[in-house]
Design a protein around this nucleic acid. Structure first.
Length: 921
DNA sequence: ACTCTGCACAGAGGA
């Protein structure tokens, strides 16, 4: 039986004498999880939790040592015992004990941890930089997968090497040289596979007599299996599985008789998960592909690069204990010192790094410390942000947990899954992968888009057969590509820690690798300095001109505050052009792909008009699905001839990429004179660092009166670096004060409420904008209350919380009214605070009217905007409390704004009360 | 309480 609960008190470990001799035991007080939470008689009482004791025997006491009250604990195959009239539980010989099972540990993390816990920490902190052995290792793995899937060796090598052209180029490698290296390792694999076919009956059907080729399609092999364990809290991707047992490929050499211990541990992790998925695993195989023909026969007499080992119970349990140690340390927020393990520092490749990090952060470390610690305020900052980023990571883990905790319908309702697909077909592709097709049976929405990675499963993403797949096309039919054929009936969003990892590395790099001058600026110890620039860049807008002057003349940083419609994008483009003319190399970045492409578009227009550099010296780095269609010609293709790929990137004078991409291995090899970050108020501090780490000086452009960064957990990440620096270095900032969007009446409230009354129309034509300026539109045709540019429509509203059907109905009427007056439907936008209300309204109005949440409207504008407040009674709730959201909503229209809401509810909040007053004026 | 975009995945290795 299965026991799960929360540790309810101190754990006691002791030794007792039993009939088998001396044994260790740990008694853990446990508050059991209520597994019948369905009990519908919601008798308003707090559920009564049952508290019991679980006895962990022998080696499991090691895990008990890490356990603290409040942690979650799971025991499999436990036995029930009666003790003084009370039901208690204890481990049996078949039990596993799992600490914090929802903390999902990567297999590679466990592999690093067993080598040295501090190695695990360092790897997490700074990531692995671009280096040839790693890229080559990855290539050999890819070719191995291809071989298993039946692809021709030479074809696979050529294709895989070509795919990595850019990385190889950055490493100074040639395609031929790399292909030769990969071939050496891959031939060992190929030979072994063929031998295996002859002797081990891996292929069940008889092949044509003259075919010596391995034919995996009919075999008991599977390549690349993604495994997620809800019981053990482990996830990872096995290189291959042969007759249910894990096969791990290593590119290194190992002439010893036994596999390396950490390699065994890795294979054991996969074995655990395979067993959970219903298998029974008694062996593991490691393939050391550098053990070439020349090495055979010598000491060991081995004929193959493969080493099999038996997967004993003891090893599997040891692996779970390792995982427990890691999870417990992460939950406590402790930092490993290296003393936890037995590795010898003098043999470690990371010894120097370890000592430097320990020295700079003043951390206890087995390897010792080198150098001076960074200042105390920086260490405090590091700890604060480390914690915040780790909280974000926990949120990603919760996303994983939802894969098994929520049922399919719940996931679909959360827009995190597409369910009830009808499987159509699987088709092998030339390169050995599979194309999978399924039909959608409902029009349900989800956040899954083309180009996304998803978990494709035949029913359940964790318990069923599932595989990581790429969405190639998504309409009535879903077309996917994957390494293995899955009869897809369901797709789930695949949670990834990638962004979290990159944030952590960016913060690490900023603090430990950043220049002293940069850190003086970031920590407010020095004021930014500026060179005098006498050129006039923009002659009809003084604030924009000052912004460009500051951006160009900044020695450290410049901060451009751009309220709605003030020509931020144009100003950025002008500044970059000026920098390019001065011969500088510029990084253009922003949080979203959309913002990057917008800024890039404006820059290209500038360059075209005043062509100082070739457009082919402008490069957009990003994935194919992320980059907008019209920017694809500038997108850097990663595949190709290494030298050519690297030249294209190195020669680029302007590189545009999202901040997340700036944290990639390829981008981290690049250096710039200036980094210019747009929409910087929507970025977390570490997110901003990912971009500015790559440059000598930086310019941040944004508006902290609009929406802040999106974060999963409530923490220090919610304030942007932009906002902090604007307050810390007011002299480095410029506010663009003239807006080119809203007429005078519309902008008045936002200007007064959010910009100290400093925002004003750029010119009389903007101030006096009305609907009459539009072709075929006459304001006289509108009812009187709508003739003013700002109108309020009072609707009593219904009592439901996140929707309001009355408002939706009124909005539908309003749209008809505007249409009757000659306004085109696609000139009208409707904004609502909640997604539920967005769909409510969408069902009432024609398709070509844009209806969306405030958050998604940020960055765009429309002739007419209708805002649905969706609130009756009071305005309680986080969505209304953040006034920046209302700022965004009110500053989208150019010519007409209609506010639809319940005036009694609005009047309960002072800001909204002033809003009413303004709208009704 | 509600809002919600990124990134490609995880792991690849040196001795």
């Amino acid at each position: 039986m299965y026991v799960r609960g929360t540790v309810a008190g101190e754990v006691e470990v002791r030794t007792v004498s039993t009939s088998y001799g001396e044994s260790d035991l740990a008694e853990v007080p446990l508050r059991l999880e209520d597994d019948d939470s369905e009990s519908e008689d919601a008798s308003d009482q707090q559920p009564e939790y049952e508290t019991t004791t679980v006895t962990l025997w022998n080696k499991w006491t090691e895990s008990a040592k890490y356990v603290e009250p409040g942690m979650e604990l799971l025991v499999t195959n436990a036995k029930e015992e009666e003790y003084q009239g009370e039901t208690r539980y204890a481990t049996t010989g078949d039990s596993y004990v799992v600490v914090e099972p929802t903390f999902l540990v990567n297999v590679t993390a466990i592999r690093n941890w067993v080598e040295c816990p501090r190695l695990y920490y360092l790897n997490k902190l700074s990531g692995v930089p671009l280096n040839y052995p790693v890229v080559k290792g990855t290539l050999v793995h890819e070719v191995f997968g291809d071989l298993l899937r039946g692809r021709d060796l030479e074809e696979s090598i050529d294709a895989r090497v070509e795919e990595r052209g850019l990385e190889l180029g950055l490493l100074g490698e040639t395609a031929e040289g790399v292909a030769e290296d990969v071939r050496e390792n891959a031939s060992a694999i190929e030979g072994w596979l063929e031998q295996g076919r002859l002797t081990e009956d891996d292929t069940e059907t008889t092949t044509d007599d003259d075919s010596t080729q391995f034919s995996p399609a009919e075999s008991s092999w599977r390549s690349e299996q993604l495994l997620i364990s809800e019981t053990f809290g482990i996830r990872g991707r096995a290189d291959a599985v042969r007759r249910g047992s894990p096969v791990e490929l290593k590119t290194g050499k190992n002439l010893k008789k036994e596999p390396r211990f950490k390699d065994k541990v890795q294979a054991a992790c996969y074995a655990l998960m395979l067993e959970e998925h219903g298998g029974s695993v008694d062996t593991g195989t490691l393939l050391y592909t550098k053990n070439s023909a020349l090495d055979r026969n010598e000491e060991t007499g081995d004929l193959t690069p493969a080493k099999d080992f038996s997967m004993g119970d003891g090893l599997l349990k040891f692996v779970v204990r390792l995982r427990n140690e890691l999870a417990a340390m992460e939950i406590k927020g402790d930092v490993p010192t290296g003393y936890e393990g037995s590795a010898k520092c003098e043999y470690c490749f990371e010894q120097d790094t370890c000592m430097v990090v320990s020295g700079r952060l003043d951390q206890e470390s087995k390897a010792g410390q080198i150098g001076q610690p960074i200042p105390a305020d920086e260490r405090e900052y590091f700890e604060r942000f480390y914690r915040a980023i780790e909280e974000e990571r926990r949120e990603v883990h919760h996303e994983y947990a939802k894969l098994w905790e929520q049922d399919a319908q719940e996931r679909a309702d959360d827009d995190r899954a597409l369910i009830d697909l009808e499987f159509v077909e699987k088709r092998p592709l030339e390169e050995g992968r599979w194309e999978l097709r399924a039909k959608r049976t409902s029009g349900a929405n989800s956040k899954i888009r083309e180009g996304d990675f998803v978990l494709a499963s035949d029913g359940h993403p964790v318990r069923g057969n599932s595989e990581l797949a790429t969405i190639e096309r998504l309409d009535d039919e879903v077309v996917l590509t994957a390494d293995e054929p899955v009869e897809v009936t369901r797709l789930d969003v695949y949670p990834s820690e990638l962004t979290t990892d990159r944030l952590l590395a960016a913060m690490h790099d900023a603090l430990l690798k950043g220049s002293d001058r940069r850190k003086d600026i970031l920590f407010g110890r020095a004021d930014p300095e500026f060179d005098t620039v006498s050129e006039t860049f923009i002659d009809n807008n003084a604030a924009q001109n000052e912004a460009v002057t500051k951006a160009v003349g900044a020695n450290d940083c410049a901060l451009i505050h751009g309220p709605p419609g003030t020509g931020k994008t144009y100003t950025i483009a002008r500044a970059i052009r000026a920098m390019v003319e001065r011969g500088e190399r510029v990084l253009l970045s922003a949080f979203t792909n959309r913002a990057v492409d917008n800024a890039l578009e404006a820059l290209l227009e500038q360059l075209e008009e005043h062509g100082e550099i070739d457009a082919d010296r402008v490069v957009r780095v990003g994935s194919e699905s992320g980059v907008r269609e019209d920017m694809q010609p500038y997108r850097l293709e990663r595949a190709g001839e290494p030298e050519d790929r690297v030249e294209t990137l190195q020669n680029a004078q302007v590189v545009a990429a999202t901040t997340a991409t700036c944290g990639s291995r390829v981008m981290k090899e690049q250096a710039f004179d200036v980094a210019l970050v747009d929409e910087a108020a929507q970025l977390t501090e570490p997110g901003t660092c990912a971009a500015i780490n790559l440059a000598e000086r930086f310019v941040l452009v944004g508006d902290h009166e609009q929406l802040p960064p999106v974060v999963r957990a409530e923490n220090d990440l919610t304030e942007s670096l932009f906002e902090r620096l604007v307050n810390c270095h007011p002299d480095a900032g410029v506010m663009l004060d003239r807006q080119y969007r809203m007429n005078q009446r519309i902008q008045a409230f936002a200007s007064r409420e959010f910009y100290d009354g400093k925002l004003r129309p750029a010119e009389p034509a903007v101030a006096g904008r009305t609907l009459d300026d539009l072709e075929d539109v006459s304001r006289d045709a509108l009812p009187e209350n709508l003739q003013d540019s700002v109108a309020f429509v009072d609707v009593e509203g219904d009592s439901s919380q996140y929707t309001d059907s009355e408002e939706a109905a009124r909005i539908a009427d309003l749209i008809e009214t505007y249409e009757a007056a000659g306004v085109e439907r696609d000139d009208i936008g409707v904004i609502a605070p909640f997604r539920a209300q967005v769909s409510e309204i969408s069902s009432h109005v024609p398709d070509d009217v844009t209806v969306d949440t405030v958050d998604r409207f940020q960055g765009s504008s429309q002739e007419v905007i209708i805002v649905s407040f969706t609130a009756t009674g009071t305005l309680e709730g986080p969505i209304f409390e953040d006034y920046r959201r209302i700022n965004v909503a009110l500053t989208r229209p150019k010519r007409a704004l209609v506010l639809v809401g319940d005036s009694n509810a609005l009047a309960t909040d002072p800001v909204y009360a002033r809003l009413l007053e303004w709208a009704n004026a």
